[in-house]
Design a protein around this nucleic acid. Structure first.
Lengths: 191, 191
DNA sequence: GTAAAAGTGTCTAAATATAGGCTAATATAC
DNA sequence: GTATATTAGCCTATATTTAGACACTTTTAC
């Protein structure tokens, strides 16, 4: 990423980023990541290559930005009242819903080695990172004597991704209630 | 219109024009033209006002560009083989189909005085102009001893708009065949 | 009727996008 | 294998967009 999206962005920069995001997202539902070229992205987004390279180092850079953006965007929907265990379950549900709302994307990931693919590792990594931020902000006790809260947050965000992989790739016909129950059980030590 | 769309347009200019066209087109299906503001268009298209005024004098200017563009775009679909009377009927059908594919727009026009509204006059004027160009290029004998071909083209494009108004506003439940038959009859002097 | 709010159209320096050319690296074809 | 085409990054002068301010008009509210 050649710019800092935390700085103020002009309307034009926002439009440009949106166009590239959308183009990559749509492409991911159509063909595997390795087959997608920068030219494809530029054609779809109607921007010249020079503009692409004004913002991104390469298509992987765009992909990572996309997942960060999507993760942030999804988890922003988390209601402020969601605290502790409830917050974790809702975070997990938001992510699971997202993939169920984008079946072509999910099918494409599955079609390319699923949970073992580079694409999924990348996806999971950035979603986990965003989930971690949300958990730190919303779902943790401010202090704990038994364990560092940062470690707890890592444990939680990892757990969410484990459950996500399970529900998407291993047991795709699982019900929401069953999934939430598994998650709750694991949160309590898996007994 | 502050630029000449016949000149070469950069990718960026094409994107900008497309965004403003789309914003106006969508707005026309949502509210009456008089209520649409330049600010609305800019918000929808995600462009600042300054950019709007780089291209257009005002919202009417954009509206006129929109209809010219749409007219041209629709009538481009006319197959090359469409000549003479056949070409006229197909031109008419393309325009009629367009409105039937955009019911919310049509309803909005009807809701605001229909064929008597400024909006429709404007629409009809620019569509007629594009139809006229198509007719001159495709549907006329190259010369005629009985009448100037330009006059004939005017007569034809007027007739198409008359039929369009009839089918959209006066007899909206008319069948396509019946409409085409009326048009043919009028072409032969209305006997 | 008058005050506040919203809209219009213009302007400018700074930010950003653009065409297209360049080299090098990879595919694809035969 | 070698030729051909496609892609990746990078670069630069030029063109376009941008924020925000300005003066003015119109709409809305009460």
């Amino acid at each position: 990423m050649k710019i800092d999206t935390n700085n103020h962005l002009t309307l034009g920069a926002k439009r440009t980023l949106k166009a590239f995001r959308t183009a990559m997202f749509e492409s991911l539902a159509e063909q595997e990541f390795d087959k997608i070229t920068v030219n494809d992205i530029c054609q779809k987004s109607e921007y010249p290559r020079a503009t692409f390279y004004n913002y991104f180092d390469d298509k992987l850079d765009l992909l990572e930005y996309l997942w960060s953006y999507i993760g942030h965007d999804i988890l922003q929907q988390l209601p402020n009242v969601a605290k502790n265990e409830d917050g974790l379950i809702q975070t997990f549900n938001l992510l699971l819903d997202f993939f169920h709302e984008h079946i072509p994307l999910l099918e494409n990931i599955k079609h390319n080695n699923g949970a073992d693919s580079h694409l999924w590792h990348n996806t999971a990594h950035y979603l986990k990172h965003e989930a971690n931020k949300i958990i730190v902000e919303n779902c943790l006790p401010s202090t704990s004597e038994r364990i560092p809260t940062k470690l707890l947050a890592r444990f939680y965000s990892d757990l969410i991704v484990v459950m996500l992989e399970w529900c998407l790739f291993e047991q795709p016909d699982i019900s929401k209630d069953q999934a939430d129950q598994y998650l709750t059980t694991l949160l309590h030590g898996g007994l």
